[in-house]
Design a protein around this nucleic acid. Structure first.
Lengths: 233, 233
DNA sequence: TGTTGTGGCAACTCGCTGTTGCCATAATAA
DNA sequence: TTATTATGGCAACAGCGAGTTGCCACAACA
């Protein structure tokens, strides 16, 4: 694993981004996603990507000098699910949101993305992309929750950030173990418990059992926080 | 990455498990845990373990033929927190349980364990250990919940398996991102929301907002599944 | 004090990442 | 169409880290 230098690009003037080149990029990126889904990040072999894409290994290295670069570009090239439609209820929106996500994650490229995200701390660039993806998904959930507040389904004082995180947690946690176990029934039940908890705690009306209940309101501290040469990606 | 065979062990008859050998095993396992915490699984180098432990690389390979074997043995050698004391309330028990866990995970070896568990699908043996660890922790949580039911803090119909999973999920999910962010306040608030949700949903008394609530009781389908050689570790 | 299990040392093999030089050809400009 | 040049294919190579091997030294036991 020789450390690659930042070599002067071959490029001297105009570069070609159409025709053959574009086709090569597409084929390689697709092949990488597929191989990631099959083998995961650690076991990904550039030779396999080359074979699957029908593009020579050298060509791949010329465009993406390291494995990380290639994977990073592949993640970047993924298109993520569009905005979720308004189903009329918060519960419906959330269900749809997560169902959409689960479907995505079930595809070959989806599995590739998951396995890459699972992969150990790799390099700052990939870490940054992970954070971006998480932030994006989280923002989407916050949006749904805010809509729920507007509808009166949730009290205004609810900590949206916390709720968004709690709602996603069961999915994330299961993802770590086995993507296969991610069924809708489970997600539905998880959502129901958490939404009920949110409704109750903010209403400060603990039911029967002597469960001590601290607030979920906005009083407590918030939870949220917040290269190299390539020819022509 | 040559695939190692399962060679005939050097051993012919009696083996030595005391004195020098025992010291070697201890030093190597400690060094491995430390290196795992520092570099993670993927970047772990046997040479580094050898250097840190002061034991020769060859010796390490003789005992643990592959990197996986070494890491696997290291995980196995970890001692996990003892049973949680009874604090008198379910909330207190859970809080203590998770606080204990967080403390553990903060140590060098703890970080090593986490990073190994995070690591991509490695080999069946490590996967098995992951499952075992998870099952063990989950059982502990179920135990606490059952105690809570006995105390009358939770309705008898509650789905203990589901609850245990939901309670652990926020911690697991955060663990994936950054161990540092795992503060007690967060865990406390998460626990409170989920416990409140459990109390409410089982009581079938949806609050104000039109949050539709499916049961958490025992009516819905259950979630749970259950279902080399080494010289002398 | 002999026997043997075990560790140290050094020099291997092997697979995979990443390189390099040369030649072939597709994309562009004239 | 033709000249020009960016880009891809090919093959051989360098480097690193995992895993081996043979030989010798020594510590644990009898």
């Amino acid at each position: 694993m020789k450390t690659p230098r930042k070599p002067e690009t071959r490029r001297t003037e105009g570069l070609r981004t159409h025709g053959r080149s574009a086709r090569v990029v597409e084929k390689v990126l697709n092949a990488t996603a597929a191989e990631l889904g099959r083998s995961g990040y650690a076991a990904l072999r550039i030779d396999d990507v080359a074979a699957r894409s029908g593009v020579n290994k050298t060509t791949i290295y010329r465009r993406w000098p390291t494995k990380i670069d290639l994977v990073s570009a592949t993640l970047r090239a993924q298109t993520y699910p569009p905005e979720v439609a308004d189903t009329g209820t918060l519960r419906g929106d959330l269900l749809e949101h997560f169902a959409h996500l689960v479907t995505m994650l079930g595809t070959t490229t989806g599995r590739g993305v998951v396995r890459t995200l699972q992969a150990e701390r790799t390099d700052p660039e990939v870490e940054r992309m992970k954070r971006e993806l998480r932030a994006e998904q989280r923002a989407r959930r916050c949006q749904l929750l805010t809509r729920g507040i507007a509808r009166g389904e949730l009290a205004a004082g609810v900590d949206v950030d916390l709720l968004a995180e709690l709602l996603a947690a069961p999915l994330v946690a299961r993802l770590m173990h086995s993507v296969e176990d991610l069924d809708r029934v489970f997600l539905e039940r998880a959502i129901d418990v958490i939404l009920a908890g949110a409704a109750t705690t903010v209403a400060r009306a603990p039911q029967r059992g002597a469960v001590a209940v601290a607030g979920v309101g906005s009083r407590a501290p918030k939870v949220s926080s917040k290269k190299r040469r390539t020819r022509a990606p």
